[in-house]
Simulated scan of single mutants.
Amino acid sequence: MNRRVLLALIGTLAMALAGCGGGEESAVPPATGATSSPDLLKNAPVADAAAILSGSTMERIKKRGKLIVAEALDAPLLSQQNPTNPDEVTGFDADLAKLLAVYILGKPEVEIIPPATETREALLANGTVDVVFNTYTITEERAEQVSFAGPYFESGLAVAVKTGNTEIKGIDDLAGKTVIVGANTPAVTEVPQRQPTANVVAFGTDPQAVTALLQGRGDAYVQDLTLLASDAKSNPQLTVVGNPFTTEPYGIGLKHGDTEFKDFVNDWLKKIQDGGQWAAAWKSSLGTVVESDPPTPPAIGSVPGS
């Protein structure tokens, strides 16, 4: 994720907390609080025994009996821990991690180690975690230190409006409108490029921008989708409309050079896209606050560094 956007997201979440060979089908018992979609894990694919290569990372995970994941515990709709039940972690990234565990183990056994932005590479390099699901934007620079499966999701700038506004459905409807953006975010330059007649008004923090929108000081608020989704989750007066109009490709971080595991994870990702589990995970998380159909998953290997 863009560093400035990520810093804004972290700050907002902190405030919110304060206030291939073909897989065989297997009936997998759902983990406690695993997902709001009851059939997501039950119908999840499980890898054939032949896909668990001898001496591979997959085999080590299977022998250990759990998948160790670097994943946030305070990211609404992505991976958020239930404060009343610490064993319950829900969201899009959390569900995908459980689906990968099912594919390897036949059960959603996941151990979560919350990473800091600057520790993700080290956690993979020293073997502390098997994978990273953590809004981990694929870049060529990062790909020199880690391998990326995917991309598995594309975030980017999106549009939010005051709930009940049916006139604006996305970036194409912002011509001549007053558009709120976060200061020092990509929206400052991107909105005028897309809609030259829009009146862009910048606010220093995300809470200030949300308040301005709800007070009617702007027609729409443009910010990163994951941040807007978090805002909408905690404030039903705000609605996200449409899918992102810029791209921020998120990858699954793996230990650098582990080609066997990367191919295995990419094969799994294609299976859950084709089988509908990817869309089901999106619907039960980000899709609960975004007024659109599930987006088309990005093509695997489609960005430099993947």
Rank of each mutant, 00 (worst) to 15 (best):
N266C: 10
R194C: 00
D267G: 15
L100P: 02
A160R: 12
P29W: 01
S285Q: 07
S230W: 00
L77D: 05
R142D: 00
V46C: 06
K98D: 02
A160I: 11
F245C: 01
V159I: 09
P108S: 06
E140A: 12
G218W: 00
E88I: 13
A281D: 14
L7C: 03
T166S: 09
F264R: 02
L41V: 13
T117F: 05
Q237S: 14
Q193K: 06
T259I: 05
M15I: 04
L67F: 03
R120L: 13
K63S: 02
V210L: 14
A125P: 00
A14S: 14
N243P: 01
G204C: 00
A158Y: 11
V132N: 01
L6H: 11
M15C: 02
D87T: 14
A34D: 10
E121K: 04
F245P: 04
I180A: 11
A209I: 10
I252N: 04
A202T: 06
S234F: 08
E260Q: 07
A280K: 02
K62G: 06
K63A: 10
K63C: 00
G19R: 14
T163S: 14
T35I: 13
A175Q: 09
A49V: 08
K177N: 01
F92Q: 13
D219H: 06
P207C: 04
P83G: 02
S37N: 15
G106Q: 08
P196E: 05
A14G: 15
W278R: 09
P151N: 11
G91N: 12
D274Q: 13
Y250C: 03
N266T: 09
V5Q: 12
T84W: 09
K233D: 04
T178V: 05
L124E: 07
G170T: 06
S56C: 07
D39C: 03
K283D: 13
T246F: 11
Q145I: 05
Q277A: 09
A280P: 05
S56A: 01
A279K: 12
D258P: 07
S230G: 03
P298K: 05
A8N: 14
L7R: 13
A198H: 02
I180T: 07
G106I: 11
A280W: 00
A51D: 15
L124N: 02
F245K: 00
V28A: 13
G21H: 06
T247D: 13
L6S: 10
G33M: 08
A212E: 10
L254K: 10
T259A: 07
V179A: 05
E111Q: 11
A47F: 08
A8K: 15
N235V: 03
V210F: 12
D87I: 07
P115K: 08
S292E: 10
D48E: 12
A122Y: 08
W278M: 10
N2R: 11
A94M: 03
T178S: 08
I272P: 01
Q273A: 13
K270N: 10
C20P: 10
E88A: 13
